[in-house]
Simulated scan of single mutants.
Amino acid sequence: MQIAVASGKGGTGKTTVAVSLFHFLEKIRGKKVHLADCDVEEPNDALFFPSLEILEQKQVHQYIPEIDTSVCTFCKKCVEWCEFNAITVVASRNFAQVDASFCHSCGACLVACPENAFTEKPHPLGVITRYLTENGNLFTEGRLEVGSAMQTMLIKELKKEVNPTVNFNILDSPPGTSCPVVETVSDVDYVILVTEPTPFGLHDLKITVELLQELKKPFGVVVNKAGLGSDDVYTFLKENNIELLGKIPFSRELARMYSSGELLGNIPEELKETYRGIIEKITCERLPF
């Protein structure tokens, strides 16, 4: 089963839920779990594991076209074909160039050029690292090259590491509702949305709910920092028949543990019951810890 953990905004507790869910599923006898940190701009899931063994680390490249101006006739057909405005051609100056920050490596310009003036050159996109946890499960992290805007491309490569033979694959999604999130949740079986009972949390939850309904993805909601703010988020869930998977009460001690990387060291007993309930609702089976 593939589960994505997502949120409409940053700071709601998405990583808390993803890492804790992985932690509890690891404890279930006979269950193999794989966690993939798809928040490639700011991956931090690894901070919460006391012991990780690196199995493999590989550089991922994006292939960017370059134009040979000695061959180019500056006809601008490549410009017409480029959907991302990544190519600039100034015929009067014999100038033609591809902007790597806009290029999506779709290959349209190579097809369009009648002179075969394009060649593709590798540019660093990011690094994918596979780890083994102390309990023998897999954790995979994507880390985007500084300055690159191609999150979605790296996430696609990262998702190739998803292991179909394990019981659960948990994908920690980037925050928001943009293309990287769509790519992360596109082929999962279920999405856990994490929100908070604040006006900002509710606003972004509504946008994310619309996205998942458009994608026809089954989902439920976990309310983090419960006890703060108002009850508006619960009213929204009830009015729209959205399943409330669980509540994680606001706790300064839990926040301290999170900020110091000690999240998994001493989880309160009541949270164990919360995650037991979340897992049972998603899997429809009784799973003893």
Score class of each variant (00 low, 15 high):
H123F: 09
G13W: 12
G142M: 05
K77D: 09
T129S: 08
A4I: 15
F200A: 10
R143M: 05
V98Q: 01
S105Q: 11
I128N: 02
L211T: 06
D204N: 01
K225M: 13
Y275K: 01
C103F: 06
K272A: 09
M257N: 10
G229L: 04
L110H: 05
L35T: 04
P124W: 04
E285W: 05
V111P: 03
K156H: 11
I155E: 03
N266D: 14
V60S: 02
E42S: 15
L202W: 00
P43F: 11
T274N: 10
N167F: 14
V181C: 12
Y275L: 11
M153Y: 08
M150L: 12
G13N: 11
T16A: 12
V17E: 03
P288M: 13
P43N: 08
L193E: 08
T73A: 06
K281I: 13
G107M: 12
K160D: 15
E280D: 07
K14Q: 09
P174T: 02
E262D: 14
R29S: 15
G176V: 05
K58Q: 14
Y190M: 13
I128G: 07
E41P: 03
Y190W: 08
P174W: 06
L228F: 10
T184N: 09
V19L: 14
W81E: 14
K156Q: 14
F236V: 02
I128V: 13
L215V: 11
D99V: 07
T235M: 07
E42A: 15
I67C: 04
C82E: 05
I28Q: 09
V60E: 09
E120I: 03
G11V: 07
G265F: 10
A100L: 11
G176K: 02
L52R: 08
P114Q: 02
F49V: 06
M150N: 08
L25K: 00
A86R: 02
H104S: 12
N224E: 03
K281P: 10
V188A: 06
K216S: 12
I282T: 04
H123N: 13
T140P: 13
G30Q: 01
Q62G: 10
P199D: 07
V71P: 02
F168K: 05
A226G: 03
L138K: 10
T133D: 08
E262N: 14
K217R: 08
C103D: 02
I28S: 05
I192H: 00
S251D: 12
R130C: 03
K217C: 09
F139W: 07
L21D: 03
T119R: 01
L193I: 15
G201P: 03
V223K: 02
A96F: 04
N85I: 06
V33T: 13
T208M: 15
Y234E: 15
S186M: 13
I87N: 02
T177Q: 08
T152D: 13
K247P: 05
D189A: 08
I170C: 04
G11N: 10
K159F: 06
